[in-house]
Computed example of a mutant assay.
Amino acid sequence: MAHPPRYRDDDPLLARVRDIALALPGASEKVSHGRPNFFTKRVFAIFGGVVKGDHASDALGQAVLVLPDEAERPALLADGRFVVPGYEGAYGWLALDLRGEPDWTEVAELVESSYRLTAPARLVAELDARGG
């Protein structure tokens, strides 16, 4: 059984994340488990997530989930804006709630860092050639 959509396609926060993610070389979007996932060979960003143990909560419904560099993870976790989401958190992913006034430069940096950890080397080289 397919998961029902857990997002609004006209969400302006999703539109910003989509613009950032799909600007990266070879990036595509697919809906998985009811949420937009951005990927090359592997997923590098997800729009929306769930709170561990509370799937009915909408606390992460408008968050961006990324896989941070292991060296950056402790600093991000020390920042109260970042949380470990249900499911993906067990694999190192973190979530940043976008409601309020997100720093879109920071969001783009987080998405790009996650992309660099998951994308094939040739796509990372293409990004570097672009000056990314």
Rank of each mutant, 00 (worst) to 15 (best):
M1L: 05
H3V: 03
H3Q: 11
P4E: 08
P5D: 13
R8M: 05
D10L: 10
D10Q: 11
D11A: 08
L13I: 06
L14K: 03
A15T: 08
A15E: 12
R18D: 07
A21R: 04
L22F: 07
L24F: 04
P25Y: 06
P25I: 05
A27T: 02
S28A: 14
S28P: 00
V31R: 02
H33W: 15
R35M: 15
P36Q: 12
P36C: 13
P36K: 11
N37H: 15
F38E: 11
F39N: 14
K41G: 15
K41Y: 11
R42A: 14
F44V: 05
F44Q: 07
F44M: 05
F47R: 02
F47V: 04
G48K: 01
G48D: 04
G49V: 03
G49I: 01
V50K: 02
K52C: 02
G53W: 06
G53H: 05
D54P: 05
S57W: 09
A59R: 13
L60V: 05
L60D: 02
Q62I: 03
A63D: 02
A63T: 03
V64N: 01
L65T: 00
V66D: 00
V66H: 00
D69K: 02
A71R: 08
A71V: 05
R73P: 01
R73G: 05
A75D: 13
L77C: 07
L77M: 14
A78Y: 02
D79S: 03
G80L: 05
G80H: 07
R81D: 04
V84S: 09
V84W: 01
V84K: 10
P85G: 04
P85D: 02
Y87A: 11
Y87Q: 12
A90E: 15
W93P: 09
W93N: 09
L94P: 07
L94H: 09
L96F: 11
D97G: 10
P102S: 12
D103H: 09
E106N: 00
E106A: 06
A108T: 07
A108S: 14
A108C: 09
A108W: 07
A108N: 08
E109H: 13
E109C: 10
L110R: 12
V111S: 10
E112F: 12
S114H: 14
S114F: 13
Y115T: 13
R116F: 14
T118I: 05
A119I: 04
P120E: 11
V124C: 00
V124S: 00
A129H: 12
R130M: 14
G131R: 11
G132F: 08
